[in-house]
Amino acid sequence: MILPYDGPSYFIIIAVLFLPIIIGLLRGKRYLIYQNLVTVLFLFLTFGGKSWHQGVSIIVYIIWQWALVYGYFHYRQKKNATNIFVGAVILAIIPLAIVKIAPLASGHNSIIGFLGVSYLTFKSVQMVMEIRDGLIKEFHPMMFLQFLLFFPTISSGPIDRYRRFEKDFNQPAYGEAYIPLLSKAIWMIMLGSVYKFIIAHYIGTFAVPYTEGLALGTKGFSVSLLLYMYSYSMYLFFDFAGYSLFAVGTSYLLGIETPVNFNKPFISPNLKEFWNRWHMSLSFWFRDYVFMRLVFTLMKKKVFKSRITVSNIGYLALFLLMGIWHGLTWYYIVYGLFHGVAMCINDAWLRYKKKHKNLPSNWATNALAIFITFNTVCFSFLIFSGILDKMFR
């Protein structure tokens, strides 16, 4: 078993196995049979070997999700009952729920768990919801498998959309049109190497453990804890942004323009914009398939009279769910609630600014906004890190 993008050997394998695919795209052809064989090999390397149960788990999981989506699509062609739709969503989520709940219930990880189960579940739920909305008019069983098992993004995203993926897969950039994509891919992989293997490596190896040791020694709020907060936040960004660059760059090599995941999030002047720049594919997934649907349902059923109240309830539910998704521990849940409350405050401030257009707006106020947003986010990552659990245990 090898972890995706975990070291030079993984990229050597990519360079060797991707060469025929790259040559084919430059010549105007997609060698689909060969590419599928490469996919199977990478899946075996990722889920086989020592963790044989992961291989079994993913096979059973794929059969489950494929049958579910296939069955719901054919049902949706004739009927559109809400209870069947809700049931299909629940059935798609059940494997992930078992994986998340099992450690809390039994003290052991679930035997059905495997690397990337969350991101595959997001894809399956997305399919059910878009079939329900009538956005997916045709269901191609093999294309759904290609989408679900697209190995560059299988472990941690970015989360692509089925219709966008299908378009790229069926109409890839060929010949001269592929060259700019190839250049971007190489650049992203190089930049990702700097992020993950140099910056994140040294911060994670030296700064984070050192500042954590100092912080735990003080047993309270201190400069050491502040330094840990910043070092951990930088590690989190460069490690995950580096991984995402690898995933997107590798996708580009295959002619698939997977959406980017990070866009300079630490220059955001408010929290809403931060979530439009940080782990964007996950943020947009939760926005489109959780927040918007919840808000629409609450407004349609007139549960609350105020749109502001509906929006605030939506934010709290959304970020609480995101916190629970990370894990059923108090600090993940508090992390989610913290962001939910912060988003409500952020929205109130934006509404206030909209009403009071005479408020000062210049480089100094923008710099202050960025500073406040940056420190708010870093404090949330301090909660997320779990160090407070160690300090006050």
Rank of each mutant, 00 (worst) to 15 (best):
Y5R: 01
D6Y: 03
G7I: 07
P8F: 09
I12E: 04
I13W: 08
I13M: 08
F18E: 08
L25A: 08
L25S: 04
R30L: 05
R30N: 00
I33M: 04
L37D: 01
V38A: 02
K50Q: 13
H53Q: 13
G55Y: 05
I58K: 03
I58L: 12
I58D: 06
V60T: 00
Y61E: 07
W64M: 07
A67Y: 12
V69E: 08
N80L: 03
I93G: 00
L96E: 04
L96D: 01
A102R: 07
H108C: 04
S110N: 08
L115E: 08
V117H: 06
V117I: 15
S118H: 02
T121C: 09
E130W: 05
R132D: 03
R132T: 10
K137Q: 11
H140I: 13
L145F: 04
L149F: 01
F151P: 06
S156G: 11
P158V: 01
P158W: 02
P158L: 07
D160M: 11
K167F: 14
D168L: 06
A173K: 13
P180L: 12
S183E: 15
K184L: 06
K184V: 10
M188K: 15
M188C: 14
K196W: 09
I198H: 08
I203F: 14
T205G: 13
P209T: 09
L216A: 04
G220C: 09
F221I: 10
L227N: 02
M229D: 02
M229T: 14
Y230H: 13
S231P: 10
G249I: 00
Y252H: 10
Y252L: 00
V260S: 11
F262V: 02
N263A: 10
I267K: 08
F274Y: 06
W278G: 02
H279Q: 14
H279T: 15
S281P: 11
F286C: 12
F286E: 05
V290H: 00
M292F: 14
L294W: 05
T297A: 14
L298P: 10
M299G: 02
K300N: 06
T309A: 11
G314T: 03
M322E: 07
H326F: 04
G327Y: 01
Y332M: 14
I333G: 07
V334Q: 00
Y335H: 14
G336T: 11
I345D: 07
D347W: 07
W349M: 15
W349H: 13
L350M: 14
Y352V: 02
Y352L: 10
K355H: 12
N358F: 09
L359I: 11
S361H: 15
N362E: 05
F374M: 03
V377M: 00
F381R: 10
F381W: 15
L382W: 03
I383K: 10
G386C: 09
G386H: 10
D389C: 01
M391V: 07
F392E: 00
